[in-house]
Nucleic acid binder design. Sequence first.
DNA 1: ACTTGTTTTAAACAACTGTTTTCCTCCATC
DNA 2: GATGGAGGAAAACAGTTGTTTAAAACAAGT
Lengths: 226, 226
Amino acid sequence: MATDNTTIAAAVVSEEGTPADNTAMRILNAAGPVFAERGYQAATIREICQAAKVNLASVNYYFRDKERLYIEAVKQAAKLRAEQVPLPDWPPGMPPEVKVRSFVHTLLSRMLGLQESPWQVRLMTREILQPSGATQELVQAYIGPLFQKLQQVIAEIVPGDMPPHRRQQIAFSIIGQCVQYRAAAPIVKLLVPPEELASHFSIDALTDHITGFTLAALGLKEPIGS
Amino acid sequence: MATDNTTIAAAVVSEEGTPADNTAMRILNAAGPVFAERGYQAATIREICQAAKVNLASVNYYFRDKERLYIEAVKQAAKLRAEQVPLPDWPPGMPPEVKVRSFVHTLLSRMLGLQESPWQVRLMTREILQPSGATQELVQAYIGPLFQKLQQVIAEIVPGDMPPHRRQQIAFSIIGQCVQYRAAAPIVKLLVPPEELASHFSIDALTDHITGFTLAALGLKEPIGS
DNA sequence: ACTTGTTTTAAACAACTGTTTTCCTCCATC
DNA sequence: GATGGAGGAAAACAGTTGTTTAAAACAAGT
């Protein structure tokens, strides 16, 4: 017996540089993209096992359920993406405008990939929109720290006596501006002419706009209309 | 035979005040909430028929497929929601600040319901995140007009020589701030203490914040930090 | 070599899915 | 009154699903 309790993931992911050759790891790596592509229900264990080149029964052997496998896949997606695009860490004395900009850039880079959004992000987006068990850990490991760090940056800008809920609203305003280009990507594509998409809705162009919009709202920059 | 081609919906929804007692209409009304709740794959025809109190074969009789039924359900959700919360229409001479505010309020009201978000919105959110055929019509009938109208309001504020892609970016910044409270609702609930949620993240409170943030960014109002 | 516990495999299982078929009931038309 | 087509009801169908079983293969300890 390999699966005794909740420490499945720890045993599966094991220590750092796993060559990912053991069965459980192969399953986990194959499951992420499939879940991201098809969604929880439409994804079949058979497809995952085929992609991982393991036997059909392996999923139930190593991860008890389809659901447990899904949760582990979501958790690993968050872990991977946070490693790929770590939160910025600035030396002391860095001006807040720069922090906001790099923060926005990090957020957009996490959401949108270089080409198309990576499976990790698509899987997490799915989970966020339709919570199914892994949301809480997702927030704790991935979104929570990000949210806190953003609030710290905001606190450096706004007056000290501003109530915390206002800082949270501002943080959500920044996050919301970034996130939608992932969540509503198909719609953005339908609303914006394709030639403008490439030039003015790239990560860098959007970083410019969102940073400018936000800093203007906070009084650190001229308003948008010059 | 009742379903011959693409004019199914027209025949089903028929003229205006349908008493919704005919079988096809009962199915359509029952399908929306079920699809919104479970998603396309997890929703079963049997559950829909049971909710509509019609025979199992009726879905395939009136709508050919499960997929056609789904598309019709999405379209009707957009139609219903647009009727429930129509876009604002202002008399000439109304100052742009007021237009922005009422627009934000409308957007938030569409997204968030009075209590919890209605099934129409949840279904549309699903479709947007995972396009499956009805997205295009959804954009044309529901999101497109909204986007255009918002750009008109923006055009009244910003300088006339501002390139169109900048107006689009601003429009997305406004929409993004609103939409996330629907798309990422479970996460907002996890990040914000519940007592603050009710008081400072209601539709009215968020309207105040987002309007203020946006108008400040556009130079129509003082920056956020007083 | 033999035992012991773990992993892998192929097959089977039972439940559920969308869809189709078959039959029955109306009800208007000739 | 007979006829025919449309609407509805129940059953059956064919395929897929997650999961389990039972046997085989393997690895290591003695």
